[in-house]
């Protein structure tokens, strides 16, 4: 093939320079910086938090952050209406967020990927039945679904997990089915069939590894979305119940104090927004990373 195309606008030197600025040890700096606090706090919370996140002391109610008048450096983000340390409560919230996001996104990915692969690979009646179930799911508004589950199970961690799984799995099913349809027609899957490779082996050895990049990108993006959903469910009172701490709960509790103690909902809201942003940026980066067209340049 002869290439008469104009030279690309970004030269290799420029691209290398850009990569040096945006990545560290091969990882993208900004998404990792945004996600790291949540992951570290989630994993090591009890060793990090300076105060008991549930410890009430009425003497120090609604203490502002230390850089404001009346603040105290031992409570670096201030305290809430019961005198609990906000920083510690944010760390406790990160634990909940990490558990919820990891578990719900993983389970949804496993279910959705399995459904998508079966539908795409076998086609016919199986495809029709599975995809109609996906369509039905897609036609139910997620909020309604959550309220329904909340009404049936009551509030709590289980409600959050089940809701997010039920909302997310269908996305995987759709995307993975499409990719499987394309993969199924490639020569190597056809030749594997000709060579009498079992369906099980084709699924595990040829389809799944080739689908993995798509799946990982989707999981990362949904990781961010699940944080927001978890906060939203908790905010409307169907998720984590007080006195436990969760980011959504801090926003919900704090909103009545917005005019007098803005720091209660603000820091929790920031935590949700920045972590979700980090997950989305990481997802974008991974998508480029796995794209063979953008690779090896």
């Amino acid at each position: 093939m002869t290439t008469t195309d104009a030279p690309p606008l970004t030269s290799p030197t420029l691209r290398r320079a850009k990569r040096r600025l945006t990545t560290l040890f091969g990882l993208p700096i900004i998404p990792v910086l945004l996600l790291a606090p949540m992951v570290i706090c989630g994993l090591f919370g009890p060793w990090i938090w300076p105060h008991d996140p549930l410890g009430i002391s009425f003497g120090i109610r609604l203490l502002p952050p230390p850089w404001l008048e009346g603040g105290n450096w031992s409570y670096i983000l201030g305290t809430d209406q019961f005198g609990r340390d906000l920083f510690s409560r944010l760390i406790e919230g990160a634990r909940i967020a990490l558990i919820v996001s990891t578990v719900s996104v993983s389970v949804a990915a496993v279910i959705g990927t399995a459904v998508g692969m079966m539908a795409g690979y076998y086609g016919g009646v199986i495809d029709m039945i599975l995809m109609r179930i996906v369509d039905v799911k897609m036609s139910i508004p997620p909020v309604l679904l959550t309220i329904l589950i909340g009404a049936a199970l009551g509030g709590g961690l289980a409600t959050i997990l089940i809701s997010i799984i039920l909302v997310f799995w269908a996305d995987y099913a759709r995307v993975i089915r499409g990719e499987t349809l394309a993969l199924k027609r490639t020569g190597y899957v056809q030749l594997a069939k000709v060579a009498n490779v079992s369906d099980r082996r084709i699924f595990l050895r040829h389809l799944l590894p080739n689908l993995a990049p798509t799946c990982i990108v989707l999981m990362t993006l949904q990781f961010g979305a699940s944080l927001v959903i978890e906060a939203a469910i908790t905010f409307i009172g169907l998720g984590i119940q007080p006195p436990a701490s969760a980011w959504g709960l801090l926003v919900a509790d704090g909103r009545t104090y917005l005019s007098t103690a803005w720091w209660i909902p603000t820091f929790a809201g920031l935590a949700i927004a920045l972590t979700a942003l980090g997950a989305n940026l990481l997802g974008d980066w991974l998508r480029d990373y796995f794209d063979p067209k953008l690779k090896k340049r």
Binding site: Y188, Q190, L191, K193, A195, R205, N210
Partner: peptide, 24 residues
């Protein structure tokens, strides 16, 4: 039929670039 395919009948397809799994 499955045991016959591959063992007694082999196949070559048009486009070699997609005839092999890129991951192995």
């Amino acid at each position: 039929m499955r045991s016959l395919r591959g063992r007694a009948i082999g196949m070559i397809l048009q486009d070699p670039s997609v005839s092999l799994d890129p991951l192995y």
